[in-house]
Design a protein around this nucleic acid. Structure first.
Lengths: 328, 328
DNA sequence: TTGAAAGCGCTAACAG
DNA sequence: CTGTTAGCGCTTTCAA
C-alpha cells in the first residue's frame, strides 16, 4: 500500500526516472515512441499517480488558486465561487476556499495560510485591500481584487453607478415619484457607487431626493431598512435595494405592512443572484456578470505576465415582476 | 525578493537548520531558552514563512481537506461548505473545494486531482459512493460521505424518515386531509427516505394516500411539481416538499394559481437552509444540523485512527408561517 | 542541547 | 534519445 513513486515506474519500465518524467510531462526532452509505450504501460500497471506536492516543491507552481470571500453562504459569493472553481478547473487549477467572515484580521490570517501553502494566486473580496495587497506584494503572489481594491493592483469590478442609474431610471419610467433606497454600509465603496447612481438618476430627472437608509448587505438589513422606509410619510412608491439579500428582507417588510408588490410598492435591486429570480414576485435586478468576472480573474492569475488589469464590467438590468412592468 | 528559507534563518541566528525546525514546531527536541529567542528574533527579522509544500513532502500531511459538493451555489451546500471550512480552520486545516456538478465522472476526476494534491481527507456528497470509496481506499485516503454512502465507509446522515414523519404529522395536526408531496429523484436515497416518512405518517393515520410527484431538487422542479399537484382535483390542502429549493418553486406555482399561503395551501419542507427563513411566508421546515455535520466530518478526518463513523443525526422541525400555525 | 546529513518525490540540467 | 545527479525546503534520525 506504500506510495508508488516515479522510481517504481522507472524500474518497471526498465528506464530512468528522467524518462518517466519526460513522458508524464510531455517534455522537456523527447522520448522514443517505443520507450514511451513501455513507460505508459508501467504507469498503468503500477497505478502510479504523480505527486503534486513533490512537483510543486521543485517546480514552483502548486497549480492552486486561493479564493477568499466574506461568506460563502451568501448567494452571490456562492455563485461567484462556483464560477471561479469552474474556470480554474478548465485550466487545471484547484481552488482553496476560505471565508473571511467580513473581518480584516481573519482575512489576513487566511492569506498568511494561503501563502504558506504557496498558492499561485488569489482572488479576493477584501475587507482591507491595502494591507492585503502589501502582504501579497511582499510575498510575490499574484492576486486580483473583486470589488474594493487598491488603486495599483489588478481588480475587477462592475459599473455600480451605471447599474444603479439604470434601475432607478427604470423605476422613474414607471411614473413613480417617491423612490427610496436601501443602501449598503457607508464605508463600502460599491455601496456608495450604487447610492450615487440612484441619486444621480433622481436629481437628473428633477425629482426630489428620495429617502435613504444605510443597512448591512443582509436580509435582516433589508427588513429593517424596509420597515423604516415604509413607515415614512409620504410612503415611497418604489424602493431600490442595493443588494438582492436586502430586497428579500424588504419583501418581508412589505408583507408585514400588507403591501402588495408591485401594486402598492415597486422594487428593483442589485446583484442578479438566483435569489432574485426565485423570489415571489421575481425581482427586477441589476445583474452582475459573475461568470465573466470569474473567467477574467482566473485568466489574470494564470496567464504568464499578464499586465495589470483594471476591469469595470458592464451590468445588465433584468426586468422581472417586482418593478411593475407586467402589471395588467 | 527570493524566498527566505530555514537556512537563512539559521544563518541569521547562528544556529543550525535543525534548531530552527525545533523551535518552529515546538519539537521534537528541546531548545535552550536563549537559543530559542535568537531563532525567534531571526525569524522575525528575516520575515521567514515556513514552506508548507516542503513540509508536506517530508512530513506526510498537507493539512488540507477536500470538499466535493454537487453545486456550491445551492444554499444547502453553501451553508455546509461554510461550516466545513470553519471547522477545518479551527483545527488548522485548509479546504480545497470542488463542484461535481452532479456528475459521477466529474466527481471521480476531481477526486483524482485531490489525490494528486495529497489531501489528508475528503468530505464528499457523492454521486457514485461505491466507486469513490474504492478509489479512496486504494489511495489510503480518509473520507466521510454525507448522504449517500457505501455501507462500510464512514458516513454522516440525518434522520430523513423521521423528519418527514414529523413534518407530515404536523400538517395532519392542522387538520389537513389531502397532503401531497413533491419528492426528489427516484434514485436518490435521501429522497426516498423522506418519501417513506411522508407515506408512513399518512397511512399510520389512516389517511388516504396523497398525491406524489418525483422532481429534481431544484426550484424549477418544485415549480413543475407544484403546478402538477395544484392542478389535480381535488386539490391538496397541503404539500410537503422534499427540499427548500423545491418549496421555493412551489411558492411560485401557488402564486400562479392565485393560492394564498397558508390559507389556501399549507407548506412544509426539508433542509432548513436560509432560503426557508427568507421566503414569504417563511417556511416551516425540517432543519438539518449543518454545523454538527461539518464538525463531525472534520473531526472524523483529523483525529488519529478514529473508528468508522456511522452517524444519523437528529433533525429539527422548525415551525414558521407556511404551515398555518400562525393563522389568526 | 545542538549539529550534520539523509532523504521525501520530482524536475531539469548536464553528460553520454 | 536516455541516464545521472543535483537540488527544491524541510523534518528527523544519529552523533557529538
Amino acid at each position: 500500500m506504500a506510495r508508488v513513486t516515479q522510481a517504481d515506474v522507472a524500474r518497471a519500465a526498465g528506464t530512468s526516472m528522467a524518462v518517466v518524467s519526460y513522458v508524464v510531462n510531455g517534455g522537456p526532452r523527447p522520448v522514443a515512441a517505443a520507450t514511451r509505450q513501455r513507460v505508459l504501460a508501467a504507469i498503468e500497471q503500477t497505478g502510479y499517480r504523480p505527486d503534486g506536492v513533490a512537483r510543486a516543491l521543485v517546480g514552483g507552481s502548486t497549480m492552486t488558486l486561493g479564493l477568499i470571500v466574506p461568506d460563502i453562504a451568501n448567494e452571490f459569493f456562492a455563485e461567484l465561487a462556483r464560477a471561479v472553481e469552474h474556470a480554474a478547473r478548465q485550466v487545471g487549477r484547484t481552488v482553496l476556499l476560505a471565508n473571511s467572515e467580513g473581518d480584516a484580521e481573519t482575512e489576513l490570517a487566511l492569506l498568511e495560510t494561503f501563502l504558506q501553502r504557496r498558492i499561485d494566486g488569489v482572488v479576493i473580496i477584501s475587507q482591507a485591500p491595502i494591507t492585503a495587497a502589501r502582504l501579497l506584494e511582499r510575498a510575490g503572489t499574484r492576486r486580483v481584487f473583486l470589488g474594493a481594491a487598491p488603486p495599483d493592483d489588478s481588480s475587477i469590478g462592475v459599473d455600480n453607478f451605471g447599474g444603479a442609474v439604470a434601475a432607478t431610471m427604470h423605476l422613474v419610467g414607471h411614473g413613480y415619484e417617491r423612490i427610496a433606497m436601501i443602501g449598503g454600509p457607508a464605508d463600502a465603496e460599491v455601496a456608495e457607487a450604487r447610492r450615487e447612481g440612484w441619486q444621480h438618476a433622481l436629481t437628473s430627472l428633477g425629482a426630489a431626493d428620495g429617502a435613504f437608509v444605510h443597512q448591512p448587505f443582509t436580509v435582516d438589513g433589508g427588513y429593517a431598512g424596509g420597515l423604516e422606509l415604509l413607515g415614512g410619510r409620504p410612503r415611497p412608491q418604489a424602493v431600490f435595494a442595493a443588494s438582492d439579500r436586502q430586497a428579500i428582507g424588504l419583501l418581508r417588510a412589505a408583507a408585514d405592512e400588507g403591501l402588495a408588490i408591485p401594486d402598492d410598492l415597486a422594487i428593483a435591486t442589485f446583484d442578479g443572484s438566483a435569489l432574485s429570480a426565485y423570489a415571489v414576485p421575481s425581482l427586477t435586478t441589476v445583474q452582475q456578470p459573475i461568470a465573466q468576472m470569474a473567467e477574467l480573474a482566473v485568466r489574470q492569475l494564470t496567464t504568464h505576465d499578464a499586465p495589470r488589469l483594471h476591469a469595470v464590467l458592464e451590468v445588465d438590468l433584468v426586468i422581472r415582476r417586482s418593478c411593475g412592468c407586467s402589471r395588467s
